[in-house]
């Protein structure tokens, strides 16, 4: 299993050339200035932004190809994203948030519930199960977002600045949680960060954009 992106990505007039292949088990760190297109790369892989040119394929299946006019919608790609601004669903509880991806993939309610609890346990957030997503602290929300992303066992895990919204103290703690999650993760993982320490400790190799 490998993910490969060859082509140009971008929104509007700003375009960036990309040529990268990531194997399963790897954690590709992505560094670069602000506004260089790190987030756009994530969104392109997830299927929120289309490629401008070139193609994007995973495990031999083309997800997006500008010349062949192929484009798979997000729910057809087995991706999961931890957004920089997290984007937890405010009207749902923590458990419902984590179950969301599982239920989207057609998993029964009971099974989704037990899996969700397990994943919350993995990020040491099981005590938050019945809280509303609205009232969580930065660190708590970050854990829930991580649990939500890995819950459905995606093939591709996209982490956009997963440690940015946290104060220094809990940052160390969460970094080790993240390291555990990533080392156990069987698929392709991409990690965007502007912090060199994150990249050296979590990523297997690093691509610098721009």
């Amino acid at each position: 299993m490998s993910l490969s992106v060859v082509g140009h990505i971008g929104k509007g007039t700003h375009t960036i050339p990309i040529d990268v292949t990531v194997e399963a088990g790897e954690v590709l760190g992505i560094a670069g200035r602000n506004g260089v297109g790190k987030t756009t790369l994530m969104e392109t892989i997830a299927g929120i932004v289309p490629l401008l040119s070139g193609s994007l394929s995973f495990d031999g299946v083309t997800w997006d190809d500008a010349s062949q006019k192929v484009w798979k919608s997000p729910e057809q790609r087995r991706c999961a994203v931890v957004f920089q601004d997290l984007r937890l669903f405010p009207h749902m509880s923590v458990l419902q948030n984590v179950m969301f991806g599982l239920r989207s993939r057609g998993i029964s309610k009971n099974e989704a519930q037990s899996t969700a609890r397990m994943k919350l346990d993995l990020v040491s957030a099981e005590h938050l199960v019945h809280r509303k997503a609205m009232g969580l602290s930065g660190g708590e929300a970050q854990r829930v977002a991580l649990a939500r992303a890995i819950a459905a066992e995606p093939d591709v895990l996209l982490l956009d600045e997963p440690l940015s919204a946290i104060d220094a103290g809990s940052r160390e703690q969460l970094r080790s949680v993240l390291a555990d999650v990533l080392s156990a993760f069987p698929g392709v993982a991409l990690l965007v960060s502007h912090d060199a320490k994150d990249l050296t400790s979590l990523a297997t190799r690093t691509l610098t954009l721009g």
Binding site: A46, G47, S73, P74, F83, R87, F89, F100, S104
Partner: peptide, 11 residues
């Protein structure tokens, strides 16, 4: 954003 994040989780 809210819609995108739902799509990105496979919904």
């Amino acid at each position: 954003d809210l819609r995108d994040s739902s799509y990105a989780l496979g919904a």
